[in-house]
Design a protein around this nucleic acid. Structure first.
Lengths: 168, 168
DNA sequence: CTTGGAATGTCAACAAGGCTGACATAATGT
DNA sequence: ACATTATGTCAGCCTTGTTGACATTCCAAG
């Protein structure tokens, strides 16, 4: 089963031994920890968690987005999201406006302080990403993105592409 | 502030606009969800969580490792790890042997059923990784690994490299 | 040899943030 | 009128992180 060790077995274009795949899996695990480490520190200071970061990020990304929309992007239950939104709104980082066309909908926006927090978080994360890209070099960057896209679930990839292309 | 949109601004070898970095950040977030989705399903069936997966993975990786060693790799508190180990041991997936030299230490091993679970989990995760690599192509693979390594914390990278090179 | 500290691991209790289920309200669409 | 949709809320559960307290074992300095 595990044809590990030794050099590429040739023949396939992709010399993917179990051992190499395992290394990639571990790399993904460790890298994700680094990826979240900087924002986590900032969030901890302010008494927030990763869930708040995600909400703030995607509201900043698509100002005026609805709760439902956010739910489908984040892939959590509305109860979970609502708990986070409630604290963000009552802390004055997020504003929720009733929809004009459809008054059932709530459109979400970052307030001034909300944008400040978002910027602190994304600056930290971007700095690390930029430095990783610089170390790895230009060719590595496109490979990185291609593999990540291929690793997403189909539904998730749809969301990602939609965000990648269009704005809101 | 955000010089987003438009093609690479040239000049730097790495055309890294804020917009591109943000896309990479989102890709990382969505990809990690895909990365954990398959094992999560298997774990949920058996009543375990991601923490159990991590423990089983690294015990399989380095049989006979001590609790302390595992702790430094996983980066959680010993109490957290201990809870997970306790259930794995009482379910008969992991065996804990008191150290011969130092009787304070516990050396951890997978039992037969433990290895079976580990294989199910890593097969699922490897399958997705392999398919992502195939879709992305050989060049992408090395770029992917390079960026991930550059994204880790320094301490984490040490652990990763040690695991990558040596066996135990 | 004894004794104090360091290392290792265990138990208890708490918090964050997932989850399900039930239910309320308001607006929309048929 | 009635069913459906969008949202919010309460209650309760689970996993998994945290800190604090404590037991055991080892080792080294007196």
């Amino acid at each position: 089963m595990a044809d590990s060790g030794g050099p590429p077995s040739g023949e396939s274009l992709l010399f993917l031994t179990d051992d190499q795949l395992r290394k990639a899996i571990e790399a993904m695990f460790f890298a994700y920890r680094g990826f979240t480490a900087d924002p986590d520190r900032i969030l901890a200071e302010k008494g927030y968690g990763r869930a708040h970061h995600r909400a703030v990020h995607f509201i900043n990304r698509s100002p005026g987005t609805t709760v439902n929309n956010l739910l489908s992007i984040l892939g959590v239950t509305k109860q979970s999201l609502n708990r986070v939104l409630r604290t963000l709104i009552s802390d004055g980082l997020v504003e929720s406006r009733i929809g004009k066309q459809d008054k059932r909908e709530r459109h979400l926006f970052l307030t001034e302080p909300g944008e400040t927090l978002e910027r602190a978080l994304s600056d930290a994360q971007r700095d690390r990403m930029r430095s990783a890209f610089r170390q790895a070099g230009p060719d590595a960057v496109s490979g990185f993105r291609q593999v990540l896209e291929a690793m997403m679930d189909a539904d998730t990839a749809r969301h990602y592409k939609r965000l990648k292309e269009g704005g809101t």
